[in-house]
Design a protein around this nucleic acid. Structure first.
Lengths: 336, 336
DNA sequence: ATTGTTTGGTTAATCGTTTAAGCATAGTTT
DNA sequence: AAACTATGCTTAAACGATTAACCAAACAAT
């Protein structure tokens, strides 16, 4: 790697001190009363030599890196990929670079990522926190590290967060089914203590109870690892027997997808034998023989808000926390 | 942000120079003959204070950042998301952090990303180069910046690269169709000068010519921006008239998807009226009424090889370039 | 007794920027 | 003429870690 042009190179060439060059190149020529002649000369030489400041050195001196850290569950997941993309663009717009990490929903991995990024002195974090990671988040908060939680948050922690109004999302989805006359409605959710999931289940429950159907509640929880193994079985169970379900809500994108793969293998006809509502968009939803009705998240808005809040905290030192619950939209197609 | 523990804090607490602490914490206690007592004490204090080295300072001094830059077209695209994920894991495995950028297939944006990452002193790049970016890549090569091109490369440039054997991929896909008896076969490709695309077209052409069908060649090229607009029209054109196509190969994932959306709207029956072969996997392919036969890329392998080659060059200063053309696999389902 | 070696440390320069503080010289007040 | 003020630039410390070079004391060898 060829060595880069430094302030010193310019200084030597022009015959001044590095301080002066730094002032000029940082637009402090007025404030620091640099001679008009020299300003021109310095700018020209800087340009000729194709100078760009060494961010590492600058970071060390200034104590900031103009870098944000984004930690999602898995960047290969299109939901997080899309989110990352918007975060990247927004960060760039504000002059920040983005570093992305995947936690695999593993709080230990999250801890390692946080350490790494802290040592690299990122100025702040946007984190999609996995289960059991309150401790790590709390640690960051205690150290006053600028931080926004996205997609999920912890009830006990006073932190910034930007999430979907998950309760309302499933409440309305369930209501839609109820309005269409379905009564025996079930939900397949992730087996997780995380608030976004419990809110989704609660939205479903409350909607059912509101219709006097508390006895009909059917909630199945799956661990992530069991998805491929158990989904066919679950679909089978729920839709047979003496009171088979009439409708099913899937509480995540992967559950929806898993569900579709399973349903495809059965004799069931959607929506006649079974109505379904999915979560998050997915092109596959459109190609299912009965294109899926689904709850869509405003990913871009979530990402933008997160960045805005984060940068606000970094640059203004804003210390009161901001919370956002965004509204879903219901994409209505043919599956119910 | 609370200040972090530094080498000096430890040094002061133990009552030694920072040099000694640095030696011990970097495992040079033997080489530098540090007293056994002190070694213990320093390690203990470092541990108690929860010390972790400031990577920024270390980077400035050592001239490396243990950071890799990955520039893809769009991290929201699952193909690149998956690739990024594997690159991330591999980089981590070797003690590197990953910074990701999206070029949007825009060489100017690529240039800006390269500048940003260079100023942040990444140790090397993995780049999926957009059209017209030879100049930027050449610039990096001239400065001896460690670099691996992925997915595509430039014929004139002597650089590392890891790509799919695109020629073989479409050659075999076309052969499959020919063997099944289809004769009037077309290909819909991206309108691009990039080698991966021209190789895909060439694979198709050669296979057709090999069967004496050069007169039947039907190659449609679409600009990325025209995809949604023109695809329905193209599908319509190709499949009607007096010699409608019997089979169609889509040369990218988004073309495949766009094609499927269009075909869904027609009266055509796949594979009876029209056989299709797609590119890259996609869950949507599985839910099309005639699950798609497609050319699948070994993304993980591509990512791993890229990282291996890159780190090899960074750490060994290896200056002979490595090139890899990986083999596709043909996932055979019901669309042909 | 002189020289040499080992042991166990310290000093100080360095990476490239930023920035507070200082210091001439010229020009302006009183 | 003495005392300020402005102008225009330089010096040097600092950020935190690394590392070459040096130093002192203890001990051994000639």
């Amino acid at each position: 790697m060829a060595k880069k042009v430094s302030l010193k190179d310019i200084a030597v060439k022009v015959g001044v001190s590095t301080a002066l060059v730094s002032y000029v190149l940082n637009g402090k020529e007025k404030e620091k009363r640099v001679g008009a002649e020299l300003v021109k000369k310095i700018k020209k030489v800087a340009n000729d030599l194709n100078y760009t400041p060494n961010q590492i050195a600058r970071s060390l001196r200034k104590g900031n890196t103009k870098t944000l850290g984004l930690i999602v569950a898995d960047i290969a997941n299109p939901f997080f990929g899309t989110m990352a993309r918007v975060v990247e663009d927004e960060a760039n717009r504000f002059g920040y670079t983005l570093v992305i990490g995947s936690s695999d929903e593993d709080s230990h991995k999250l801890g390692k990522l946080i350490d790494t990024l802290c040592n690299r002195q990122v100025d702040g974090f946007i984190i999609v926190p996995p289960e059991g990671s309150e401790g790590h988040i709390e640690g960051l908060l205690r150290r006053d590290v600028p931080l926004v939680l996205a997609d999920r948050y912890f009830v006990g922690l006073e932190s910034n967060y930007v999430v979907l109004d998950n309760y309302k999302a499933t409440y309305e989805a369930t209501s839609l089914l109820l309005n269409k006359g379905y009564k025996r409605i079930g939900i397949v959710a992730q087996d997780s203590e995380l608030i976004h999931m419990s809110e989704r289940v609660r939205g479903y429950s409350e909607a059912m109870k509101g219709n006097g159907l508390e006895k009909e509640l059917c909630i199945k929880k799956l661990k992530f690892s069991e998805l491929k193994l158990k989904m066919p079985e679950i679909v089978q169970d729920l839709t047979s027997g003496d009171s088979p379900l009439e409708a099913l809500i899937f509480a995540t994108n992967s559950l929806s997808l898993g569900g579709l793969y399973s349903i495809k293998e059965t004799e069931l006809n959607v929506p006649n034998d079974l109505a379904i509502i999915g979560f998050d968009g997915n092109e596959a939803f459109d190609f299912f023989y009965a294109p899926l009705t689904y709850i869509s998240q405003p990913i871009a808005k979530m990402a933008k808000e997160s960045v805005r809040i984060l940068i606000n905290q970094i640059e203004q030192g804003n210390n009161k926390t901001e919370n956002k619950k965004l509204k879903h939209s219901l994409i209505i197609q043919d599956s119910c």
